[in-house]
Amino acid sequence: MNITLNGNNKSLQKKSSVLDLLKDLQLTPETVVVELNTTIIQPDSYDSTDIGEGDQVEIIRFVGGG
């Protein structure tokens, strides 16, 4: 399955939820903002939201310190 992740093409091996994708990318779910086809996904829906063929995914990642 092919998606667009932050403007770049990415292939996913299997059906994935948002949470699966974040794990695959080794990102901590609490420290990112995820937008799926222009909708912001709330963290409590990461597990239940599936990513489909051709979806546009934007992930904004934060690192600690301030």
Binding site: T31, V33, I40, Q42, I60, G64, G66
Partner: peptide, 18 residues
Amino acid sequence: ECFDDPAMKAATLRSILT
């Protein structure tokens, strides 16, 4: 947003966007 905690950083941007 000047937080130290990355979870609050993300939460703030999410709140701003939505």
